[in-house]
Design a protein around this nucleic acid. Structure first.
Lengths: 142, 142
DNA sequence: AACGTTCATGAGAATCATTCTCGCACAGTT
DNA sequence: AACTGTGCGAGAATGATTCTCATGAACGTT
C-alpha cells in the first residue's frame, strides 16, 4: 500500500516464452488468434502456457509491437507489425493481408471529431475483400 | 416439398418480444449490448428470454435494421440505425454516438483494394474519442 | 557462486458472452 | 376445434479470455 507505484509497465523481463512467441509471430504471415499461436508454439516444441500467451500478447499490444484485429466472430487476432500507424486490407477468404499507410482517414477522423467536440481521438479501420488469387479460384465454379 | 421456397427470411412473424426489443432500441441513444438490452427489457416488465434477444438481434441485423459494433472488449453492441451506409463517432466514456456520413474512406478503400487486386470490398470503421461533456467532467479531478 | 527479492510462468478454475437444445405455446389455416 | 409450423424460453453447452496461486526463473547484491 505504502509502496510507490512501479512507475510504468515499461520494460519487462526477457524470457524464453516471450521470445518464442515473438518468433512464431515473425514466421507467420496473417493474423492469428491467441489459441492458434498457442497451438503453433506447442507444435514447435516450445510449449508455452495459454495464460502466458494471452498475457504476453497483451503486453506486446500495449507496447505497439503487435496489431490486434477482431475477426467477424469477435475473436482477437494478432500480428507482428511495423509500429507506425496503418490499416489493413485483408482477404476474407485466405487471410492474406496488405498493410495500408497514408489513408485519408486520419485527417478526416480528426476533423469530424473536432467538429463534434470530441477529444483524444482514435479510430479503427479494416478493409476486407477477396484477393485476386481467391477470386480466380472461385470464378470457374460459378 | 413441392411448395416454392419462402422467398427469403424476409418478414417473420411479428411478436410481442420483437416489438418490445425494437421499442427499447428506439428509446435508447447509444449502442447497447445484448445483455444490457435483456436487462432493460426485464426492468420494463417486458421480460424476454435472453436467447430470444440474441436471435432477434441477429435477425434484425441481417435485415439491416440495426447496426452492430464491437466495443473494445469484443462485445457486440447494437443500435437501431438508418439503413444507409455510415460510420460512428463514439464517446469511449459515456457511449454517446454520432453518425458520420460522407467519409472519404469509401472511395479510398475502393481504390487501394483495386490497386492490390482485391474485389468485393467492404470495410469497417469506427472512431472513438472523449466527448466534450466527459472531458469536462474529468478535467477537474486531475 | 550462493542468497533473497521480485516478477513471470503455467495448470486449472472461474467468468462471461453467445449459441444450442428441446419441450411448450401460440398464430394462422382448414 | 384440431392441425401444423414457427417463435419462445430455461437451462445446458461452448469457447475465448481472465484470474488464482504456488512454483520457478532472472537480477542485484554479497
Amino acid at each position: 500500500m505504502t509502496r510507490p507505484e512501479p512507475a510504468e509497465a515499461a520494460s519487462r523481463r526477457p524470457t524464453r516464452q516471450r521470445s518464442a512467441l515473438l518468433a512464431v509471430l515473425s514466421d507467420t504471415d496473417g493474423f492469428r488468434s491467441a489459441q492458434e499461436l498457442h497451438a503453433l508454439l506447442r507444435a514447435r516444441g516450445d510449449g508455452v502456457g495459454l495464460a502466458t500467451v494471452y498475457r504476453t500478447l497483451q503486453a506486446l499490444t500495449d507496447q505497439g509491437q503487435v496489431d490486434v484485429v477482431r475477426n467477424a466472430d469477435g475473436e482477437a487476432t494478432y500480428r507482428r507489425c511495423s509500429t507506425a500507424h496503418h490499416h489493413h486490407l485483408m482477404c476474407r477468404s485466405c487471410g492474406r493481408t496488405v498493410e495500408l499507410a497514408d489513408s485519408p482517414v486520419e485527417r478526416w477522423a480528426a476533423r469530424v471529431a473536432d467538429q463534434h467536440g470530441f477529444a483524444d481521438v482514435q479510430h479503427q479501420l479494416e478493409v476486407f475483400g477477396t484477393c485476386a488469387a481467391c477470386a480466380a479460384a472461385r470464378e470457374p465454379q460459378r
